[in-house]
């Protein structure tokens, strides 16, 4: 059954997928840092949605939709319009190219990112495995 994106159910499905992925466990074994995935409005999505993930040494410890942006102080924030997220999640746009061209914006400890690029790749792979319904 497909899950609407962005939603609490969707990020929990991704958490489950990540925690079952041997490839992610290997690639992200040195990763420390939680995320806000900030999905900006577009199409039928009329408000910003923030999805939270706590990623720690190859596992996702927590994942849920955030209603109060001040609820957490995540180490990383990745933001962009819903259309860009959809392109990345459906493999129409490479995530690194999306960030390098300013279509997605990443804030956080860039040294950690540059030393763990494989973890980022596996994170995106996980996104593409979730059966997803996007806003029209």
């Amino acid at each position: 059954m497909s899950i609407p994106f962005p939603s609490d159910a969707w990020i929990k499905a991704m958490m489950e997928d990540l925690n079952q992925s041997q490839a992610y466990a290997e690639a992200a074994k040195n990763w420390e840092g939680d995320f806000y995935f900030i999905i900006e409005p577009g199409g039928s999505l009329d408000h910003t949605v923030i999805l939270y993930m706590d990623l720690w040494h190859g596992k996702c410890r927590e994942a849920f939709e955030i209603t109060d942006p001040e609820a957490r102080k995540p180490a990383f924030r990745l933001s962009g319009p819903i259309q860009t997220w959809k392109k990345v999640m459906t493999r129409q746009l490479d995530p690194m190219q999306a960030m390098m061209t300013g279509q997605l914006r990443l804030q956080g400890n860039m040294a950690m990112v540059m030393k763990n690029v494989r973890a980022a790749k596996e994170l995106v792979e996980s996104c593409t495995r979730i059966p997803t319904i996007f806003p029209v």
């Binding site: 960030m99 400890n109 040294a111 540059m114």
Partner: peptide, 9 residues
């Protein structure tokens, strides 16, 4: 930090 040189910023 030179380790943080990156193609995004």
């Amino acid at each position: 930090d030179p380790e943080a040189i990156n193609p995004i910023e």
